[in-house]
Computed example of a mutant assay.
Amino acid sequence: MGRDRGNPRQGSRTARPGQPGYRLSVPDGRLVPVTEIDAKIEALVPAWLTLPDIAERFGVEVTRVRQLVKEGQLIAVRRGENRALHVPAEFIGEDRIVKGLAGTLTLLKDDGFSDEEMLEWLFTPDPTLPGTPVQALRENRGTEVKRRAQALAV
Rank of each mutant, 00 (worst) to 15 (best):
R3M: 10
D4I: 13
R5H: 12
G6V: 11
N7A: 12
P8W: 14
P8I: 03
R9F: 12
R9V: 05
S12C: 06
S12D: 15
R13M: 10
A15V: 14
P17C: 03
G18A: 11
G18F: 12
P20N: 07
P20T: 08
G21M: 14
G21K: 15
R23K: 13
S25F: 15
P27D: 10
D28I: 09
D28F: 14
G29M: 11
G29Y: 13
P33L: 14
P33R: 15
V34L: 15
T35R: 15
I37L: 15
K40R: 15
K40P: 02
I41H: 13
E42W: 06
A43R: 15
A43C: 13
P46C: 11
A47E: 13
W48T: 09
L49D: 10
L51E: 02
L51W: 04
D53E: 13
D53M: 13
I54Y: 09
R57V: 12
F58Q: 03
F58E: 01
V62S: 02
T63I: 03
V65Q: 03
V65P: 00
V65G: 01
R66Q: 06
L68T: 00
G72T: 05
Q73S: 04
L74I: 06
R79M: 07
R79I: 07
G80Q: 10
R83H: 03
E90T: 07
F91R: 07
F91L: 07
I92D: 10
I92K: 12
G93Q: 08
G93L: 04
G93M: 02
R96P: 00
V98R: 14
V98E: 11
L101Y: 08
A102H: 04
A102T: 12
G103E: 10
L108A: 06
L108Y: 09
D110R: 08
D111A: 06
D111V: 05
D111S: 03
F113E: 00
E116T: 05
E116L: 07
M118K: 08
L119D: 04
L119W: 08
W121D: 00
L122Y: 05
D126H: 11
P127A: 09
T128H: 09
L129V: 04
P130V: 01
G131M: 11
P133M: 08
P133N: 09
V134S: 04
E139V: 01
N140K: 11
G142P: 01
E144R: 10
E144Q: 10
V145I: 06
V145E: 06
V145M: 11
K146T: 00
K146A: 03
K146R: 08
R147E: 00
A149P: 01
Q150T: 01
A151E: 03
L152G: 00
L152F: 01
L152D: 00
V154K: 01
